[in-house]
Write a protein that binds this DNA or RNA. Sequence first.
DNA 1: CTGAAAGCGCTTACAG
DNA 2: CTGAAAGCGCTTACAG
Lengths: 330, 330
Amino acid sequence: MKNITISDVAEALGVSKTTVSRAISGKGRIGAETREKVLAYIEKHNYTPNVIAKSLAQSKTYNIGVMIPAEYDITDLPFFQSCLFGIQEIAATMDYDILLTISKPEDTSHLERIVTNRKVDGVILMRTFVDDKQAKVLAKRGLPFVTIGSTNVEQAIQVDQDHKNACKELTSILLMKKMTRIALIGGDENHVVTQNRLRGYIEAFEDAGIPVIEDLIYLGANNQVLLEQRVEDILQKGADCIISMDDALCGNVLKKLRAEHVKVPGDIKIASFYNSSLLENNVPSITSLSFDEKELGMVACRNLMDKIEDKETHKTTTLGYQVILRESTQ
Amino acid sequence: MKNITISDVAEALGVSKTTVSRAISGKGRIGAETREKVLAYIEKHNYTPNVIAKSLAQSKTYNIGVMIPAEYDITDLPFFQSCLFGIQEIAATMDYDILLTISKPEDTSHLERIVTNRKVDGVILMRTFVDDKQAKVLAKRGLPFVTIGSTNVEQAIQVDQDHKNACKELTSILLMKKMTRIALIGGDENHVVTQNRLRGYIEAFEDAGIPVIEDLIYLGANNQVLLEQRVEDILQKGADCIISMDDALCGNVLKKLRAEHVKVPGDIKIASFYNSSLLENNVPSITSLSFDEKELGMVACRNLMDKIEDKETHKTTTLGYQVILRESTQ
DNA sequence: CTGAAAGCGCTTACAG
DNA sequence: CTGAAAGCGCTTACAG
């Protein structure tokens, strides 16, 4: 039951290992006839190459690392799963596999381990941070990597959804609908994406010539108690709309409003990000920004593959969005 | 910038590669003094072993494969993420990495590829099926593997949550509360777990000496239209309670009930599985069965590691559950 | 306790 | 177009 190797094939066919290797890889000159002969034999005796040996000889692993941040709310966000799906779809077609790592973004030990152990040819970071330790590690090591989300680490190949313009367009529409006291509740301030959304929000006000009410901007709400306080605050300040930066957050906002007997959209309008299944069943239906996460993963992976194989790559790719207006802002 | 190898260390220290290898691995006799010397040098020049070379020499990859089913509702279920988290936590401590593959359970091509390419030392199947192609492939290849969920494939090491008894206890409680027309809406009939839950449901009726109403059992509801029809059916048949086999399903049931102006728990009681964030914000709060997914992943991984290293392993492990009674069944 | 040597299964200059 | 040989960086009987 021992595995058949390239030597076995060579011996059986009376050719050299070199020839067999060439027939398989398609690299180097080789006679058509010889190639056919080798390929036929291989097929018949179903020889399968030992990828580890190939790895060692080529210093390639045919693995890509995918880093998922271990966040408190990770179980709430379908985002990563959809995205991963896209990555895998592309990777599989190129005969690459995915080495998955879940870790806290400030803890680079897992990342350093897989890099040090040379277990991957490149890495995809599923989320970027304002001070991005992981991106820096990769830049320093000189390993190809792409970030999902923008970053100021120069060496990164970036693929991003256009959160800034998405948030800007949403805010503009709300302003057009005569809301002006629009509260913005945000996720982690260390996420680049949070900053981008904020920028979009502000630009919308600027374009409309309406002053931003700084008081209504709340970033970094990361627990239920704090969030409830903020919602109370917002209500007291007489806001006419709340934009939440993700559906999990928005779900909690809605919960609090319900508890306070505040009607949506009667008393206050509501909008959210991601259009995920989390709020799918909410009554009223929730206005939301929608992105294509699977496509995002596919593009990220394709770019990484290109970079690994030293092909030309776009340094930055930005994907679109949809604004879906529903009952909650009517 | 070339990587320092075991030969470099050996040469620098005037010892043999064998000695260096032994100092690092801790295998084989070696003098304490020599070992210290090697270790110190390695530390100072931060030598890191080439895992690929080690792999080739040992025929080990230090990777475990994790197979996630590509299901229509995968984005809805936080289950896999929590479980994965547990797996990775254990794997990392053993210096193993996770090779993740998402694929349709009837399509074994991805699995066969990673096995054929010898990219993993063992596999965890995240879900089992009544006719489990993936488990069969692994059994045939003789690779160590553990299944999350039970299976009739003999070679499998199984780790499961006690869905049968969980469902039985829940049903018993509902029966005790004088509900008897309890509808059961299930997921895919090909999932072993679906069958186990059904068994628990039936046993509860048997134990109570109450006849099961076959008419109220609906398995395989996999789209919204069909589901809505079934809910209409259930209402018409005068059921007093609906148990849904997962929170995504339950969310859709609740949506339909709301549309029909049926009050929960006034007109009908509701119970669900998983106790996930999906229904966290629902009003009324939903009675649910709760499992520890992360623990599940940890146990699965630990068992696989043991199997890979030829240690004793429990052939079957069953983890507990909690019944959380809330407003929806009051 | 230590080392020389073969081996893991490929790839790839180099030579012909 | 084809091959002999060295090399990738480890591990591991075997001998001493």
